[in-house]
Design a protein around this nucleic acid. Structure first.
Length: 573
RNA sequence: UGGGGAAUAGUGUAACGGUAGCACAACUGACUCUGGAUCAGUUAGUUAAGGUUCGAAUCCUUAUUCCCCAGCCA
């Protein structure tokens, strides 16, 4: 019960009498190494890997590197790191489509010999012309009926590099009038005099994805080729190619062409879309190249590298992938769900610390000069094992500027002239007076504290309505904090008026850098990537740019802020 | 106007002829040394019209809407 449609199909396939009865379930994640992985890939990855796990099967990581003009080693390395980080385990099954080029080439020769493929001299434009349209049938290439011998000779010379790029292709002989355009004599090989990141200059012809992909899965024994919806129209072609090779072959290998090759089953599902997010690889590359973000691992990017740097955890991503489910319906998931999964995970594991992002100075007038109280603070109320720590309290402190209002609006519980509040784990303080600069801005608060309230409770039982976070002005560490917001201002970045584009919807305030922040001294030894909850503010992690004495934090996600909601509502009225 | 898919609260997803459920969001309230967390509750849905059936989100028919396909990209 509650099983997704793919798992149901797999279950049927491996059941007695099923297509793969008695066979071990085998899946794969087949990225093209031409960009960084994003959260949408994590969904696909988690489906592929999760199904292999659930059925006690095998999972491969395979790079689909059939186009040397856009693939690079940099992306291979980045993808491996990302897949590892997400937590999918391919054991020793890391493969490259390019390692199968010889086998795939041999099958192409076989199809030529079987009269099912031919060398076509039409150039790119003419191939398009001959293909017809969605509603009109195409027409046969004039080269469609070349002899097997001529095709073999020409294809061999294509491989040897005798012809320039684009001058000829090897095509499958299917049906130029087919209602499915993918079946109108698709190109199997194109001539490309390009250096391949693994094959060097060995090849002058490269297989097209459609021709190669089914064989890659076949070679690896993949039972279930899971992919996104746009490949649904291609499935009949993959089946045709495998069937074409298997024609003249038998299970025991006694037929003319030998033994049949494995025929995987492809199942398609809808790719992930997120509100306020762009998932197109092309556009993510564009954002990076146009320097609209600071690289693929910019914490605002939906790339796995970006999410990791932002402070996301693999566990939050797993939870998210599980919750969104699998289907064939176009859908856009609320990014709030991703953030919810993150908060839920971080709430359990991130230690609490105090940090003041927009400091305002507080002087405790009746607190002895030079005195330091080591205040005991709980590291994580959700995890008793996390223990506690000491944090210094002194006469001069910083609190959040937003936690004080000279004229508090209705519903504001925090500090105001004459009001008493609690400083978390420390003392009750009462605001006595305010110091302003020439422009009338509040620069300093003078308060008194009640020594009897050490630890945060009043012996006389009196209550306060607010608890504020604070740091010692003298002992705190100065830090840089980067606040992030959605990269786009609209739930659908493509929602732009006539004449404008998605780029006009980029959020100009997606990053705010605060350089005057103060964090409690216990953070001096925080390591890159380490995650914390800054009490009452949100979850933060130490950025890659951080250095000892030069701490830099990223805001991963804010805490839910019900006061902000109340205040907002008050403004509307 | 060709072919291939898909339609369930605002969003995502269950229900496989038998009480339309869950999660996120939103809104109430309780509790709280984080206006956090937690807990309790509320609002809100089967694209439409016919048909089959004791009974339909589910089966049939028709319509509507949305997505994908005319790279020598993947």
């Amino acid at each position: 019960m509650g099983r997704d449609f793919i798992r149901e199909a797999v279950e049927g396939d491996i059941a007695p009498g099923g297509r793969f009865a008695g066979v071990k379930v085998h899946t794969r994640f087949p990225p093209e190494p031409n960009a960084y992985l994003h959260i949408g890939h994590a969904k696909a990855l988690w489906i592929d890997y999760g199904i292999a796990q659930d059925f006690g099967g095998l999972f491969n990581l395979r790079f689909d590197d059939t186009n040397p003009t856009r693939e690079e080693q940099e992306f291979v390395d980045a993808i491996i790191e990302d897949v590892k980080w997400v937590g999918a385990n391919w054991d020793d099954r890391l493969f490259f489509a390019s390692d199968y080029f010889d086998a795939i080439y041999a099958w192409a020769i076989e199809l030529i010999k079987k009269g099912k493929a031919y060398v076509c001299d039409l150039n790119s434009d003419l191939v398009t012309d001959y293909r017809g349209t969605l509603t009109a049938p195409g027409k046969d290439s004039p080269y469609r009926n070349r002899s097997v011998e001529e095709n073999l000779d020409l294809f061999d010379r294509m491989r040897k590099g005798e012809f320039p790029d684009g001058s000829r292709t090897l095509r499958a002989k299917i049906d130029m009038a087919h209602a499915n355009l993918n079946m109108r004599d698709p190109v199997m090989y194109r001539i490309l005099h390009a250096e391949h990141h693994r094959q060097g200059s060995k090849w002058c012809v490269y297989p097209m994805y459609d021709w190669a992909h089914g064989f890659e899965d076949s070679i690896e024994g993949v039972t279930h080729s899971l992919c996104s919806l746009e490949y649904e129209n291609h499935r009949p072609l993959y089946d045709w190619f495998i069937d074409a090779v298997n024609a003249g072959r038998s299970d025991d290998g006694s037929d003319a062409w030998g033994k049949k090759i494995h025929h995987p089953r492809q199942i398609e599902f809808a790719r992930l879309n997120l509100t306020y997010t762009m998932m197109s690889k092309r556009r993510l590359i564009e954002l990076v190249q146009a320097k609209l973000v600071n690289g693929f691992d910019d914490p605002r990017m939906p790339t796995l590298a970006g999410l990791r740097r932002r402070g996301y955890t693999p566990e939050a991503i797993h939870d998210f992938c599980t919750r969104i489910g699998i289907n064939k319906t176009y859908s856009v998931v609320d990014i709030g769900l991703l953030e919810h999964c993150l908060r839920e995970d971080l709430n359990k594991r991130a230690n609490r610390v105090m940090a003041v992002l927009h400091p305002i100075k507080v002087v405790i007038d009746n607190y002895p000069d030079g005195q330091v109280d080591e205040i005991s603070a709980i590291n994580n109320p959700e995890d008793a094992a996390a223990g506690s720590r000491k944090t210094p309290f002194t006469k001069v402190l910083y609190i959040e500027a937003d936690d004080f209002r000279e004229e508090p609006p209705k519903g504001f519980f925090r500090l105001a002239p004459g009001r008493e509040v609690r400083l978390r784990y420390a003392y009750f303080i009462t605001c006595k007076s305010v110091v302003k600069d020439a422009a009338g801005n509040v620069t300093e608060l003078h308060c008194t504290y009640d020594p009897a309230t050490l630890g945060g409770d009043a012996p006389d039982g009196r209550k306060v309505k607010a608890t504020l976070h604070w740091v010692s002005a003298e002992k705190a560490l100065k830090a840089e904090v980067r606040l992030y917001d959605h990269l786009f201002t609209k739930p659908d970045p493509d929602d732009a008026p006539q004449g404008q584009s998605w780029k006009d919807n980029i959020n100009p305030k997606s990053m705010e850098v605060l350089t005057e922040c103060y964090v409690e001294p216990s953070l001096a030894t925080a390591e890159k990537g380490q995650k914390f909850q800054f009490e009452r503010l949100g979850y933060f992690c130490v950025d890659l740019d951080s250095a000892p004495g030069q701490l830099v934090f990223n805001r991963t996600v804010s805490l839910k802020d019900s006061w902000a909601k109340v205040e907002k509502k008050g403004q509307k009225v």
